[in-house]
Structures are given as C-alpha cells and as structure tokens.
C-alpha cells in the first residue's frame, strides 16, 4: 500500500494553554514495498507521525492516505478496523502490551479481534513462532515468565500474526543486547523481502537506517528536515550536525580519511570490506607513484 502524507499538521490540545504543534506541514510519499527509515530526536514528531499510519491520530490539517484509506479532519474511514489489520505497529518496548495468561492466547489476541478464524490463527502461529525465534514449547507458558528478549518476540509475533501489509516499527530493538538487536532487525528485513511488506522503521540508529532502508526521512521539530536515499542523506554531515544528528560511522571514517589523504572517495553504501579494499589501494598507491 502506498502511503501519502499531504501537508499534514498535528496539534495537541489546540487553542488551550498547553497547545503543542507536533507535526507541521509534513509532506512525503512511501511507495508500496519500500523500506523507509524515519530518523529524528526524541520530540521531533516521530511518534505522532506513526500514530497517523493506523488512524490512532487524525491530522489537524492535511490528509494522510494509506492505500484506499484516507484520513483527514473531514473524512475518517468507516472501517478503522480494516485499516488497523492492514497496518501492523510494533511499538517501543512492545512487551509492555502483553496481558494474556499464555503466550498462545496473547499472540492470537490481535488476529482474533480482526475476525480471523481460529483455524487460520493456529496455522499462522505454527509459522510465525519459529520465525521470530521462539521455541514452540513456550506457547502454553505465561508470557510473564519469559525473559525480556523472549517477551519482545511474543509481542512481535502478535503483530505479525495479523499479516499486515504495512509494518511500522518504532525502535523495535531498544534495550536488547547487540545479538538480540541484530537478530530482530535481520528477521524484519527478511520478512520485508519475502512478503513484500511496506516497512516504516523509526530509529535513532543511523547504522540501522543505512543498513536496511532504501529511503530516509529526517524529522526535526515536527518538520521534515531532509529526505532521500540513505547515501544521499547520510553524506550531508553539516546539515545533519545542525540538528545534532551524526552521520553513520562508516561515513564519518571515510570523510576523515578523505581529509587526511586529500582524496575524494565517494560514499556509495559500500560494505566495510569494499571500503577496506579502496583504502588499501590508496595507501599502496604511493608505492607505484
């Protein structure tokens, strides 16, 4: 599903002393099947932005379209449930939403609410539980007996079991250890590819944005600050520093290298291995000259 934001403004408690403009005149497009990273500081409007994606908030001004669903002050979809079943959201610390007695019931909670038949839920569970890296014997256990990392996986499985077309991830790896982070991010990327999902990742990690996204949107103070391919956005060091964001480490290093060696090696999303190869050429270059 294509996602289109047209001049979206969102104001909390308008016309009150506590009025706060969370989003201001934001316009962008997310093509169906793409993987988009939304980057910005806490308070930049990221959370407000994503809660528009499944109609939890309705724009104060402007229009949000998700496939055939359209959200604006004048027009709310009648079928909000339909929208929410097509857009799955993994919130920050999603394990905080667990409440059922068993893991199985908790995973089934979402699909059941969306009217998916019991048989089908059961079938999906067999597929999703191993996919998120959970052993099948956890199904009958209480989610509250599991480790933090496992609880996180249960919550994620609950979202995936609805089989959404759009997957919204709000810092899905916060608080996990490095291995856990990598596993979860890789799993989402695999799903994204296999099921041609449209994925929206909200993250603080420039490294993750660079590694997985094919489009990056930078938010600052509720406004869209920059947008483009990762290799375009992440090489604009000065612009990013202006809003106190860093460029990914590989870009940082490349820039320092270029400065020290007076070269102008371009950044084109090369891997560390490829970078090493180029550097090696430059360093040895002196030999032949």
């Amino acid at each position: 599903m294509d996602i289109i934001f047209e001049n979206v403004t969102y104001i909390y408690q308008p016309n009150s002393p506590f009025q706060h403009i969370a989003l201001q005149d934001v316009t962008f497009q997310i093509k169906s099947g793409s993987y988009v990273a939304i980057v910005g500081h806490t308070g930049s409007g990221k959370s407000t932005l994503i809660s528009h994606l499944n109609g939890l908030t309705i724009p104060t001004e402007g229009t949000v379209s998700i496939g055939d669903y359209s959200l604006s002050k004048e027009q709310k979809p009648n079928d909000m449930k339909g929208l929410r079943s097509r857009v799955g959201v993994v919130f920050q610390y999603p394990e905080h939403q667990l409440f059922e007695e068993t893991v199985e019931k908790d995973i089934a909670f979402g699909p059941d609410n969306f009217g998916i038949p019991k048989e089908e839920i059961k079938r999906r569970m067999e597929e999703i539980v191993p996919a998120v890296g959970l052993p099948t014997d956890v199904l009958q256990r209480s989610p509250f007996d599991l480790s933090g990392g496992q609880m996180r996986r249960v919550a994620i499985a609950g979202v995936l079991a609805v089989k959404p077309e759009v997957l919204v991830l709000d810092e899905p790896t916060a608080g996990l250890d490095p291995r856990g982070q990598r596993e979860i991010m890789d799993m989402f990327y695999q799903l994204h590819k296999e099921q041609s999902l449209t994925t929206v990742l909200v993250t603080h990690s420039m490294e993750d944005a660079l590694k997985y996204a094919d489009h990056v949107i930078i938010l600052n103070n509720g406004k869209k600050y920059m947008e483009g391919k990762p290799e375009e956005v992440f090489t604009q060091k000065d612009a990013l520093h202006k809003v106190q964001l860093d460029v990914p480490e590989i870009v940082q290093f490349l820039m320092k290298f270029n400065h020290k060696f007076s070269t102008s090696l371009p950044f084109k999303k090369q891997t560390i291995k490829e970078l090493a190869e180029t550097i090696q050429h430059v360093v040895r270059g002196a030999e032949s000259s």
């Binding site: 291995r179 480490e249 590989i250 290093f253 560390i272 291995k273 090493a276 190869e277 090696q280």
Partner: peptide, 18 residues
C-alpha cells in the same frame, strides 16, 4: 553475542587485504 567496534572490523579487513 557481543559487538565489535567499527574500527576494529575495518582494521581486520585491511589486514585481510594485505
């Protein structure tokens, strides 16, 4: 299950390349 800093990985790759 631990992470390695970017420079350490790069240094390894550079060693690999000779």
């Amino acid at each position: 299950g631990l992470d390695i800093p970017f420079v350490a990985i790069l240094a390894d790759e550079l060693r690999e390349s000779g």
